[in-house]
Design a protein around this nucleic acid. Structure first.
Length: 573
DNA sequence: GCCGTTTTCGGCCCGACTGTTTTCAGTCG
């Protein structure tokens, strides 16, 4: 069974982590991580590419050596060098390294001196006061490590974007009250709209830094002040979310925003371009020797580097630099392009509002259509409707549609895909619907081959339109079920089916990388909220964010179209 | 280990903060 790109990327990342602990050349370590990122961003499996005789060294960050290693992994399922290194260094050390304050050097020092290779070992050693005795460590470091080790079990490592927004809003309001404050903005992965964020990076411009810092560390929701300096401070909120605050002068705003937005890989790539032009880029500006040539706005910085402006969502070093050099950046979709929602629930099953209330809320959002897509019988936990129930429900939607003003209600269903790949409603009902949103709700534990077969069989049904939440992931709770996404997308293309970007903050499924894969394959997507209440129709923007991260343009999305155009697209010949 | 209108060898982004140092390594973003 050929390995997926992500599995090969995982192997490279693991190998990089172990190499790093061995004090290997840092650029060699980086080379493996760069290659891993390239692999994760590909829309085609390297196994298939090699079968077709492609030369992988044409991909960025992959040279002769790594192409050979990829071939070895595909042939044997292993990277011999990793297996060998894993014998002298326990692979578990890579997990310890994820702890704040622990990097490769210290992890290795702890392992060599005290045989620490697990969180429990670390806790024991810290409590016994053995860490402070090591050279390079001290009392404070030991205390911090103990706290971090204890905290790890207590808090989630990353927060959903929507949750981070809720914590950020009051903090920003609080900071705006400082005298001399000019701009306040959240940069980092939050600004790049990643599905989850590990911390908040707040950038502030002000005439003086000290008053900002003083107020920042006195915010009432703070659990702990991690560090405090004149231009940079870090705190942890009571929720466990870490917040960094950075103060820069107004003339550096653009350069600082660029630097603080990242990603790290994007920053390295842009700084490398600067170096090649004989310039230096840091958070204070773009410099030619000691003269600042750009920095007030991000646009200035990009322009001075010979690049078109790159939207934050694209800044992952996944090809956006080259696209910007050639003027081939995508025209990303925006929330205002969305003309309707294609997945919503009502009181008929597990929603909180009536059809009429949902229609009114959608109309207020300026939509011209809303699909009412309640659950089918097999999803008992959501009080799914059987064929008889659905017949009555369809009449209710039709009746509501006649009364609704300014919005069209689409007769739809979230049809459960049964284990044998059949659909959970008879064709006699399915054919009465305007569209179907089909999804897996049970049996997540099939093999990738079985799950893929199951879904493709479902797509064979001529009434199958959109595959909803295609991997079933729930952030922090449930891993995506294994499925061959490339095959699934190919099957959808061949049959005139589509995939959904589910906009629920805990789902965001398809992921950004899979959205990019669909875009590259020419497969159109629905962006839909799966709203269970009138309010949560507002989740649409999170779905749009992930689509943007996947380079998706308005034409790539079903529900940027009028109903008549959409209807024509949904029709399967 | 990758990469090339400076180079097939010699580079590889840049700065802030902390703690343990006595001039700086480690970590982080």
């Amino acid at each position: 069974m050929p390995k997926q790109n992500t599995e090969i990327a995982d192997i490279f990342d693991r190998y990089a982590a172990l190499l790093e602990m061995q004090d290997a050349n840092v650029f060699r370590v980086r080379a493996y991580r760069d290659a891993a990122r390239t692999l994760r961003g590909l829309s085609k499996s390297v196994a298939a590419m090699l079968d077709e005789g492609a030369d992988l060294t044409e991909l960025s960050h992959i040279g002769d050596e790594l192409q050979k290693k990829i071939q070895t992994i595909l042939e044997t399922g292993h990277l011999p060098q990793l297996d060998k290194l894993g014998k002298s260094i326990p692979p578990e050390l890579a997990d310890l390294e994820a702890l704040p304050g622990l990097g490769p050097k210290r992890v290795m020092a702890l392992y060599q001196a005290l045989k620490i290779d697990s969180l429990q070992d670390l806790l024991d050693a810290a409590q016994a006061g053995r860490i402070r005795e090591l050279s390079g460590f001290g009392e404070k470091t030991e205390k911090k490590l103990l706290e971090e080790a204890q905290r790890r079990a207590q808090f989630l490592k990353r927060f959903e974007l929507a949750a981070a927004e809720q914590m950020a809003a009051p903090l920003l309001d609080y900071l705006r009250d400082v005298k001399g404050m000019k701009k306040v903005i959240i940069a980092g992965s939050y600004r790049r709209r990643r599905a989850t964020v590990g911390d908040l990076d707040i950038l502030v411009t002000a005439t003086k830094g000290a008053p900002v810092m003083d107020r920042f560390v006195r915010y009432e929701d703070i659990g702990e002040v991690v560090s405090q300096g004149g231009t940079r401070s870090t705190v942890r909120l009571q929720s466990g979310l870490q917040v960094d605050l950075r103060v820069v002068p107004e003339v550096s705003y653009g350069a600082a925003l660029h630097y603080f937005t990242g990603s790290k890989a994007h920053n390295i790539a842009t700084r490398t371009i600067a170096v090649k032009k004989g310039l230096k880029l840091n958070e204070y500006g773009l410099y030619k020797s000691n003269e600042r040539v750009a920095g007030r706005t991000e646009q200035d910085v990009y322009a001075a580097l010979g690049l078109a402006y790159i939207e934050p969502e694209l800044r992952e070093d996944r090809g956006e630099i080259e696209a910007a050099q050639r003027g081939r950046l995508p025209g990303l979709i925006e929330l205002k392009d969305i003309r309707g929602d294609l997945h919503a629930h009502t009181k008929a099953t597990d929603g909180q509002n009536t059809i009429e209330e949902m229609a009114e809320a959608a109309s207020k959002r300026g939509y011209s259509y809303l699909a009412i897509s309640d659950h089918t019988q097999h999803v008992t936990i959501a009080q799914g409707l059987d064929a008889k129930g659905f017949a009555a429900h369809i009449e209710a939607i039709e009746s509501a549609n006649e009364k609704a003003e300014g919005i069209r209600l689409l007769k739809a269903a979230e049809v459960d895909i049964l284990e044998d790949g059949s659909l959970d409603l008879p064709d006699s009902i399915l054919k009465q619907l305007d569209l179907t949103v089909c999804a897996v709700h049970y049996q997540f534990d099939l093999t990738s081959a079985q799950q893929t077969e199951r879904i493709i069989r479902a797509m064979d049904n001529p009434y199958f339109n959109i595959l909803a939440h295609p991997t079933g992931r729930l952030m922090g709770k449930r891993e995506p079920y294994p499925v061959d996404m490339e095959r699934l997308m190919k099957a959808a293309l061949e049959r005139g089916c589509f995939l959904e970007i589910n906009a629920q903050p805990a789902r965001l499924d398809l992921s950004d990388e899979h959205a990019r894969m669909a875009k590259d394959m020419g497969l159109k997507l629905a962006i839909a909220t799966d709203a269970h209440s009138a309010d949560t129709l507002g989740y649409m923007r999170f779905g749009v964010d992930q689509a943007r991260r996947g380079w998706v343009e308005p034409a790539d999305v079903l529900n940027t179209r009028s109903w008549s155009d959409l209807k024509a697209l949904l029709k399967r010949s």
